[in-house]
Design a protein around this nucleic acid. Structure first.
Ligand code: FES
Ligand code: FES
Lengths: 146, 146
DNA sequence: TTTATAAAAGATATTTTTATCTTTTATCGA
DNA sequence: TCGATAAAAGATAAAAATATCTTTTATAAA
């Protein structure tokens, strides 16, 4: 569905949202452990998200990643777009050049409904809305939640 | 959503279904043109689908690809499983080890609904059900339908 | 001001996906 | 039986995704 990079990205942002909710900053090491991803790889991904303004960061001691008030309101769709692009939301399910009503692929009519539902879900979901669930361990960001 | 390989695979099978509906056989060259895919690449993919019994083939002059009565009843989900595996139907949307009710990721509850809808759509759709639409040019398998 | 820290940036490596090319095998028709 | 045809099989190549390592820069605290 999403690229691995994108999966890591979403999990990282949700992790940062939870861990920084009272103004703390979160290190790459902590994120890497918290979402079970390769440390250097998630660093690269966060660099990209930082450039695009989806997360904030500060260098140096006591530095780390956090979310501005604005960034807390970003949606999961924003992250997917930043990493994987728009294809999943607007592209043809069978990969013909362009999705269009005029020259539809065979599954166009059914597929566009599902694609829309996926977009709506990701669009309405904001990155800071899972903080309490994560805190209460009612939701998880990695397999080994021990 | 699907890999490029999988997109080609589905389009190829739909093309074969249409072109071979009266017992004709379809060459790789024809398929490659009909769905606008690299000739050698679609050959490899069809080899795989043939091994797995999703399409039939015959070598030699007048040879080519076709669908047995049984193969005509296969679903798009069967093709997706054969090429991309089950991940898209059963895997976690955020890529944590396993999707489970017990240790769900934050989007689990919403995501599983969409994943299910996608599966149901692909499962109920059989490869031979677009023959007349394709014939009538009401649906297309490539961008340049000229 | 110096030192330690942590992210940014840049370079490199590995793996997987996508694509191409060549040789072999099966089958048909002459 | 022979030659042409078309897919199967195997080898190789190119591109993209994933991952790692090293150096640089910014920042804070001592
Ligand atoms: S044309 Fe294929 S999904 Fe719209
Ligand atoms: S655990 Fe993530 S989708 Fe079920």
């Amino acid at each position: 569905m999403f690229s691995k990079t994108c999966e890591y990205a979403i999990r990282a942002v949700l992790y940062i949202a939870q861990m920084s909710k009272n103004g703390e900053k979160v290190s790459i090491k902590s994120i890497s452990k918290g979402i079970d991803s390769p440390e250097h790889f998630i660093a690269k991904i966060l660099q990209e998200l930082s450039k695009k303004g989806l997360v904030q960061s500060l260098k140096g001691p006591t530095g780390g990643f956090y979310l501005s008030e604005h960034s807390k309101k970003h949606s999961l769709a924003d992250i997917v777009k930043a990493i994987d692009g728009e294809k999943i939301f607007t592209g043809c399910g069978l990969g013909i050049g362009q999705c269009s009503e005029e020259f539809p692929c065979p599954i166009h009519n059914d597929f566009k409904v599902i694609r829309k539902k996926l977009f709506d879900l990701l669009q309405k979901t904001k990155v800071n809305e899972f903080n309490t669930q994560l805190e209460a361990k009612l939701a998880f960001l990695k397999k080994n939640h021990t």
